[in-house]
Amino acid sequence: MAASDNYFASPAKMRIYKAREIGSKTLTYVFLSILGLFMLVPFVYMIITSFRDADAYDLDTMNKVFNLIPSWFNSELGRPNYTLDNYITVFTYRNPVTQEPINFGYYYLNTIYVSVISTFFTLITSVLAAFAFARCEFKGKTLLFTILLATMMIPGEMMVITNFQTVKQLGWDNTFAALIFVHGVSVFYIYYMRQTFQQIPNELFLAAKVDGYGHFAYLWKVMVPIAMPTIVTIAILSLMGAWNAYIWPNLVASGRWRLNSDWSMKLVSNGLMSLFTNSDTGLSKDTVRIAGSMVCTVPLFIFFLIFRKYIMRGVSRSGIKG
């Protein structure tokens, strides 16, 4: 504030201004803390409840008491209030009636498999298409690009209706193909990639040409390494999208795998939903459900902590979720 000292006619006025400044700073922090708490409460609640003993939790509900952080030992039940049982349940449960596994082990493997493969396809298609739009000249380039951008306006439901039929007709329901290929390309990622490619100076291309590089060698050996940060961002956003997908997997892959009827096709979000709706199977415990939520959330969180920079930069330019 040293520079602004001379704005004020008298020291008294300056003192008033400074007092006001401190007051408003405090208010700012209070405001942010309250809203920050509002953001964090669901997480805190989720973490604590997921470790709570299911019976102790039910006892609280029956006694109509609310316990945010219960003491370690529950004297009524004669055992600790905290346990890992909820987590064990969500990883080992099998519906006694239908033998349908409600098991996040399957869901994890499915989700990782689908997200990695579909991200791989997304990267290949977007890098190649973006290269064509950024580096090459061809007839109808502007028209094609405009058409692609226009499809971004159209609600996904219009596509889902037909894709649902296509997938069923191809016999792809309850297979991984339905989950992978329908999201094998994204117009937004092509657009984002093209923006990055356009920033690469033309001189590099000419230099590479002298060295005997063709278009694709140039793309692979020069452009891709330079655009690596963007590629990483796209990969992360695409992985996150696949992890959070619910609507499409619910439509086409909510049963057992076609090739192995022991294998549940569900992805994490769908598995979580079935954890909630299967109230008739003895899985109606809230603590188990919360543990399921926790199991869905934690991998993404770890991912976020590692790639925070890439994620926040990518998101501020996009606006896509799930």
């Binding site: 964090l40 509900t61 979000s269 919360i290 399921g292 939520s293 959330t297 969180f301 926040m312 998101v315």
Partner: peptide, 22 residues
């Protein structure tokens, strides 16, 4: 802190809200 809701699964946290609003 304010960015955290973005990297969470909407379904998972919706369920947490479901239980918060019991």
């Amino acid at each position: 802190v304010f960015f955290l809701p973005y990297v969470t699964n909407s379904i998972a946290l919706g369920m947490v809200f479901h239980i918060i609003f019991t």
